[in-house]
Every structure is written in C-alpha cells, then in structure tokens.
C-alpha cells in the first residue's frame, strides 16, 4: 500500500516508518498490539494526516517517529538515517530535523521558564548564538506567529498566555530549529474553536515559507481533508486506508473510514439544522 501511494516521485521521503510494531503485555498475560506492522512515508514539504480514534495508536506512532520510544519491530528513517536504532547521543545531530507540536499547550512548557528562556533553549540546542542573536531571532519568530507585542511576550511565563498564544508559542519553539518535518499531535484539540482556523493557517503559512513537512495527527477527518495532501486512517494499531486526501474522503474503501466520514457529515448536518 505504501509503495503505491507515497513513492510517487524521485524525491526521497523525509520520514519513513516501516513495519512498526509495538506490543504491551496485559495483566492476564495476554499481548496487546498498540501498533501492528505500520508503514508510512512523509514526503518533504507535504502534509500527511494520520486519522483515527483515541487509542488507535496514533500518538504511539508519533513517539516512535520522534524517537521518544523504540519500536519492538520495524524501523524509522529520518532524512535517510535509521534513527530508531540510534542512541540518544547518536540521535543528537538529527534531533533538530524533526520537532513535535503537542496537544496540550499548557503542559508542553516548563512552567518556570519565560518565553525568552524557552526560545533561547531551543535555539541553543543546535547552535551557539549570542544573546543579541537569540533576542533578534526570538522577536522575529514571535512576530511571525502574531504573538505581539513580542518584547512583552518574551518576558511572560507560559501560564500568562492564552491557550491560542501558547499553541502558537508551541509552533514557534518547533520552527526555531528549522526542522524538515513537524509531528503535530492533535494540535487543534486543546485549542478553542475560534483559534483552530488561525492555527491551521499559521501551519500552512510556515509550510509555504519553510517547506516543512507535517505528520498531522488528528481524530477529525474533515480537518484532514481540508489541510492534508494525503490521509492515513488508523484503526486498532493498523493503517486501514492510505491515499490522497480527496480520494480517501470521497471514495473510502474501508468500513471504518466510512464511519469516520459519516460521523463528520452527521456533525455538519446537525450544524446546518441549527442554522
């Protein structure tokens, strides 16, 4: 399935996940597969949406992609490097190529660090810029994220920002290190409905400017349809459908994908009825 849909061009994928399995042992001695032989490719500059319900294994897969957890079987390749087999030390030079944007913007920052310290810490993780450079780049990034007035924002602690501002700071920290791919794990679910559109637009702008790819994890197939180039539908630890976004949404093949689409349509009908 992977070969048919993703290796469309001569360009090598920025992220390759192959035959990833992760199992857990249950209390009664049984085996539970969080992921079973999952394969995905993310091409440079594209958005691949990973859609599925809670507990389908999306976040576990994201952790494998970020090398925060090791698979029991299979491998992860980042820009041609087999990261899943690397130690923390070996991984260090490759860390900046892949960055996360987590769901809960209130838990994603050290509460004792100011915005200035958070951004400086990210920048200094890859190079050794002086204070003036850090300050200038921080202000530029905050401006780009529409976090204004940047000078004031720099002095604040994360809890002094609104949910939407925190999520933009979350994205700001990720792009500080110029990653090739961002793994966005439900970046909209913690945000207010009114903010979701802004966050999506921001992510799209960054992609256009920096050519960054997204592995966009969500439970919302409607958002995936609007935002992603391709969609992979995940159910019970397996990829059950994988293809171009339009193709998956307009002519779904797997029953679970159909259920997801029907649920989204039902929601829209109810909304229309309310109007």
């Amino acid at each position: 399935m992977v070969e048919n849909t993703s290796l469309r061009s001569e360009v090598a994928p920025i992220l390759r996940l192959r035959d990833i399995s992760k199992k857990y042992y249950t209390r009664d001695g049984g085996v539970f597969y969080a992921l079973k032989e999952v394969s995905l490719d993310v091409m440079p500059g594209e958005t691949l949406a990973l859609v599925g319900e809670s507990g389908s294994g999306k976040s576990t897969l994201a952790r494998m992609a970020l090398n925060l957890a090791k698979p029991d079987a299979g491998w992860v390749e980042l820009a041609g490097h087999r990261t899943s087999e690397m130690s923390a030390q070996e991984m260090k030079p490759h860390r900046s190529k892949i960055q996360p944007v987590f769901q809960d913007s209130s838990a994603t920052f050290n509460p004792r660090r100011t915005v200035r310290q958070i951004l400086a810490q990210a920048m200094r993780s890859t190079s050794n810029p002086d204070d003036a450079e850090v300050e200038a780049k921080s202000i530029a990034i905050l401006e780009q994220m529409s976090l204004r007035p940047a000078q004031q924002i720099l002095k604040r602690f994360p809890h002094e920002l609104s949910g939407g501002q925190r999520q933009r700071l979350n994205i700001a920290r990720a792009i500080c290190v110029n990653p090739s791919i961002i793994v966005a794990d439900e970046p909209l679910s913690g945000a207010d409905v009114s903010i979701r559109g802004k966050v999506l637009n921001l992510l799209r702008d960054i992609q256009e400017q920096a050519g960054v790819a997204y592995l966009f994890i969500t439970h919302d197939i409607a958002v995936s349809h609007a935002f992603a180039n391709r969609i992979a539908v995940m159910h019970e630890g397996k990829i059950v459908e994988y293809g171009e976004a339009r193709e998956v949404v307009e002519s779904p093949k797997h029953p679970y994908t159909k259920v997801l689409i029907e649920s989204a349509l039902l929601g829209r009908e109810r909304l229309d009825a309310l109007r």
Partner: peptide
C-alpha cells in the same frame, strides 16, 4: 518530551 526532542 519537548526538551528531549531538542536533544537536551
């Protein structure tokens, strides 16, 4: 996790 992803 975010700090680990920065290679700290």
């Amino acid at each position: 996790d975010a700090l680990r992803c920065l290679g700290i």
